[in-house]
């Protein structure tokens, strides 16, 4: 009996360490296999970077964690994706609820064609929250969190589309933070931005990892090295190597990884 108890304790500690897990995951788009069987554990409160040449399945794999592939034509998945030890592809999982727990930031800033305020408040409003004071506080706090507050505080009701690209992307991050997720998925969040905006977002990611588990897809090896604790190298739908970023970038185990990070292909 005491052994059993010990086991569950160990199990829980594993759960806490590994926020996200993939077990034998395969993804198909019709007949095409985009992810060819991946097992992976992603640590809580760390930044994990996905790198690899385009088309290797980084986005597909990332989007599994908030079930954003569900509506894609021809999408089919095998295996399990676990968040805090729970399989999120079980039948009874409420997908909307799941997505409140997992924030997502996209490659191209995609603010709604509405005001700054409405953008950040959207996630809360769709949960049925109407309390004006609460919404206001939450919007302000989220904008402060992404260091956008000082730039927009004069007019929260101006259109979000009037902001610069970098500001829009930070707004999109604020919008995701407002619903208080514990995980943030970012799919090449800086690839459409200038170097200065990119630096601001990287700084932000660094601050956010204290409270959130962050997974970031990036094309930029320097960026992966700068912001991430762990890096995973994907190639043709397979996870080739996954290690501490320092180790992976300085002393990779696999030849393919080395070829990629030294720029010999990709």
């Amino acid at each position: 009996m005491s052994k059993e108890k010990k086991d569950t304790v160990i199990d829980k500690s594993i759960k806490r360490k590994h926020k996200l897990q993939a077990k034998g995951v395969k993804v198909f788009y019709n007949d095409f296999m985009a992810i060819k069987g991946i097992d992976m554990n992603i640590r809580a409160n760390k930044v994990t970077a996905f790198i690899g040449p385009s088309g290797c399945g980084k986005s597909t794999f990332l989007r599994l964690f908030d079930r954003m592939n569900d509506y894609v034509d021809g999408f089919r998945m095998e295996g399990e994706i676990l968040i805090d030890g729970e399989n999120i592809y079980k039948k009874k999982v409420n997908v909307e609820q799941l997505r409140k727990q997992v924030g997502m930031v996209f490659q191209k800033p995609n603010p709604f064609p509405k005001s700054i305020f409405e953008n950040v408040a959207y996630g809360l409003k769709i949960q049925g929250i109407k309390d004006k004071k609460f919404l206001q506080e939450k919007v302000v706090a989220s904008l402060k969190q992404v260091a956008l507050w000082d730039e927009v505080k004069d007019d929260l009701h101006k259109s979000a589309l009037a902001l610069s690209g970098g500001q829009q992307q930070r707004l999109c991050i604020a919008r995701a933070l407002a619903v208080e997720p514990s995980i943030i998925l970012m799919d090449e969040p800086t690839s459409a931005l200038d170097p200065l905006s990119t630096a601001k977002i990287e700084e932000l990611i660094y601050e956010l990892k204290e409270k959130y588990t962050i997974v970031i897809v990036t094309h930029n090896m320097q960026q992966a090295g700068r912001v991430s604790d762990y890096t995973a190298f994907f190639y043709l739908g397979e996870l080739i190597e996954y290690d501490k970023s320092k180790k992976l970038f300085t002393n990779p185990e696999k030849q393919q990884t080395e070829n990629y990070i030294t720029g010999r292909f990709g």
Binding site: D66, M68, Y71, E96, Q97, L98, R99, K100, G103, M104, F106, N110, P111, F112, Y122, G123, I126, Q127, C172, R175, A176, V179
Partner: peptide, 9 residues
């Protein structure tokens, strides 16, 4: 994408 990702139905 943005709307669904925020948990909208």
């Amino acid at each position: 994408d943005a709307s669904y990702a925020l948990g909208a139905s």
